[in-house]
Design a protein around this nucleic acid. Sequence first.
DNA 1: ATGGATACATACTTTAGGGTAAGTACTTGT
DNA 2: ACAAGTACTTACCCTAAAGTATGTATCCAT
Lengths: 139, 139
Amino acid sequence: MTQIKESSTIQENKITAFNECPVTYVMEKIGGYWKPIILYHLLTGSKRYSELKKTIPAITEKMLIQHLKQLEADDLVIRESRPVVPPHVTYTLTKAGMALKPVMYTMAKWAIEQADTNAKFTYKSLDDFPESPTMLEEV
Amino acid sequence: MTQIKESSTIQENKITAFNECPVTYVMEKIGGYWKPIILYHLLTGSKRYSELKKTIPAITEKMLIQHLKQLEADDLVIRESRPVVPPHVTYTLTKAGMALKPVMYTMAKWAIEQADTNAKFTYKSLDDFPESPTMLEEV
DNA sequence: ATGGATACATACTTTAGGGTAAGTACTTGT
DNA sequence: ACAAGTACTTACCCTAAAGTATGTATCCAT
């Protein structure tokens, strides 16, 4: 997991923003190109590592575990492994992770409202958030 | 405004995520260390460039206009300048910008709920979001 | 003994975002 | 003549996030 230089202005500003701005705090937790997508797929229930890989074809394995580790460290997902061969590992949302549902929903709602204006999106409705994976599928 | 290479995997993935994932779409618009803070301060009303500078002391002028330009390009703020000397420029949230209020509120709410668990935040309540600037002040 | 399945790990490179520092234009006040 | 105020602009550098490529361990089936 990529090392971070422990004293740069950029780090300091980040930490300050993180501590003072709740919005930044959330974005730290769920930011990046892949985290929302991973979280979205976990909203519908526990998934194995390989299942996540299959449902998110474009992600590399490095990015996948890297983000899973971060999500675990942030107490948003729980990793459970069965000591069998071949390995069997499942990832499940914690309470805090589940609590992101309304957050993501509100964000999605705004995005789709804006989409009416811009008309350049492939997703169009919030009808089935997050029961069916229409919105974030196939990324 | 920093040039972007127009064909890298990272750009492609970003654009895909941006088009398919509404959450990523939102984060593109309000992400970065400074954008939420700028937006927050604009939620309480129009501000001049210099006022923003004063209320967000840690931001550099480069970052400030850079983000203001981006927010303007994204139709979240409107720039109005009076042709006087010294210049008089104000920034105001658009409708879309204003519509971010519940989005930011929901995010903040989650952050503060988590804060109860972690107890390491300088902000503690949502009581006065966004009427008083207690939450994002002094960053 | 070789390949497949599973869940990673690790070294290296590229890119975009952020930061530093300095300069510009135009006018008023001293 | 020079500084101060306002709203920027520009050139250059550094860092962290993201991507590429390859390797590892274990067991089972063929």
